[in-house]
Design a protein around this nucleic acid. Structure first.
Length: 426
RNA sequence: GGGGAGUUUCCCGAGUGGCCAAAGGGGUCAGACUGUAAAUCUGAUGGCAAUGCCUUCGAAGGUUCGAAUCCUUCACUCCCCA
């Protein structure tokens, strides 16, 4: 049994535990069961879920059994913790679709087939869905003193606001999550719940309920919230969240997010999100310090995480794309390779004759929508910001022909440093 | 209801008869620098068959060789007095 608490703590993954003395002992004694909840608010997990996922993963590696709970029931209610206003309710259909999207992603982080420590994936709708209202009030609600509930941070914060209310529905949320813990204890002997620091109130509610209902002592452990050194939320891009699904955030974009991470955040992220050991991380950071321009730490972080989330193949695609986006001329590629590398890039189909008869470079830029009109295209080209297959264009009179194709049917246009577009000739 | 101020290009804002496709700033785009950051510097920024032509200064008419600029009407915005 590895000392998982010690590992989590040097990695900075522990914000607080409900019992700093007994919890580590318990976890060293024998294999225990631990759970974390995931709200199905979208059809994919995002970077915000990574912390909890990695914690479960480390528990499993240390010899414990992780349970991932998707909140099919709780998701219907909406957790008020950390939310400044009442949440919109999700329909049952979209919840189902969301859960279906999250499942395969969870499987990437946890091992579901390794004997007694195999991870479990459960949906709390399976036990909450059938619960009758009266039954719930009598069996569960009875054990919640309202004054205690009112004292919870998540509730108080909302009540103090004058511009946002808190509905009875959301107020009841913590009862559901508390009951989850009790249920998992009964069914799976689960004794520990982990979550973000904003989950403290919900976790302790579950522990209290278990004591009252079953007379047992359960445990909780929270991790810090994931923020960047500049105070902004980690995993937020201009275009929204950084998703774990390749459809919502391409492996390239995912990889690039980590490559571009601030020096100040990279050490923490290496500890949080990679399986690298303490010494290895220290020496990598030392090396990074000597030549920060090389971005050694960011590069390693991006590699580790992209591989974990998108597999070896996704990492390859991302790295190849990076090479091309920041590198040399493009040629000798085939359509399939280009399609995966330039998955995020707008493309346009044109008849092949256009190219065969010679396509003026200005028209090509307008067609690709890189330039909104011919004057714009002319401007970019004369200023030296226009590239075909990453080769700079000299002169506005240039004409594209069949031998400018980078692959069977595609020409890659670029305006400036990072605006790409594809023209496909079919 | 009476009086006053205003409406300019992506945004703010200058422009009171020709030198106005319209100052300046912001934004945006491009270039240089750089660590794929920030900052900085430089250039560009209505359209086109481009040393020219066409369209644009709230809308429509008018005066004039010539109008963002002067006149008339209309629309909208703001301020003051009732």
């Amino acid at each position: 049994m590895n000392d998982v608490i010690r590992e989590l703590s040097w990695r900075g993954l522990i914000n607080q535990t409900t019992d700093d003395v007994n919890l580590p002992k318990l976890l060293l004694e024998k294999s225990r069961t631990v759970y974390a909840g995931f709200d199905p608010t979208a059809d994919s997990l995002h970077v915000g879920h990574l912390m909890a996922l990695m914690i479960l993963r480390r528990f499993q590696k240390a010899g414990h059994r992780p349970i991932a709970v998707v909140g099919g029931a709780t998701g219907m209610i909406g957790d008020p913790s950390g939310k400044s206003e009442e949440r919109k309710l999700l329909s049952e259909d979209s919840l189902r679709a969301n859960i279906a999207g999250m499942e395969p992603q969870l499987r990437r982080f946890l091992d579901f087939d390794c004997g007694p420590r195999s991870a479990l994936l459960v949906n709390n709708y399976d036990w909450m869905g059938r619960f009758g209202y009266l039954e719930f009030l009598r069996d569960v609600g009875k054990h919640f003193p309202v004054n205690v509930m009112l004292a919870k941070d998540s509730v108080r914060a909302r009540l103090e606001r004058t511009d946002a209310g808190l509905s009875y529905t959301e107020f009841s949320y913590m009862l559901l999550q508390a009951y989850d813990f009790v249920h998992l204890y009964q069914q799976h002997d689960c004794e520990l719940q982990v979550g973000g620091s904003d989950q403290w109130g919900n976790i302790t509610a579950g522990i209290d309920l278990a004591r009252r209902l079953r007379g047992v002592q359960l445990y909780g452990c929270t991790c810090p919230l994931l923020t960047k050194s500049d105070g902004t939320k980690m995993g937020k891009t201009e275009s929204g969240a950084l998703w774990l699904s390749a459809e919502k955030t391409s492996p390239y974009q995912f990889y690039q997010y980590w490559i571009n991470l601030d020096d100040a955040d990279v050490g923490r992220c290496l500890r949080f999100f990679t399986d690298m050991g303490q010494e290895e991380i220290e020496s990598l950071l030392g090396e990074h310090q000597r030549d920060p321009g090389k971005r050694l730490a960011q590069r390693r972080l991006a590699q580790e995480l992209t591989q974990l989330v998108h597999d070896q193949e996704g990492l390859h695609t991302a790295e190849r794309a990076t090479e091309i986006f920041f590198g040399a001329e493009i040629n000798h590629l085939n359509d399939a390779q280009l399609a995966s590398i330039f998955a995020d890039v707008p493309s346009k189909q044109l008849p092949r004759e256009k190219l065969a008869t010679g396509l003026p470079i200005i028209d090509a830029f307008v067609e690709s929508t890189l330039s909104k009109n011919k004057s714009d295209a002319r401007r970019v080209i004369t200023q030296g910001g226009a590239y075909v297959n990453n080769r700079r264009i000299e002169g506005i009179d240039c004409t594209l022909g069949l031998n400018d194709l980078a692959s069977e049917s595609t020409i890659i246009l670029r305006s400036g440093k990072k605006n790409y577009a594809l023209l496909r000739f079919v």
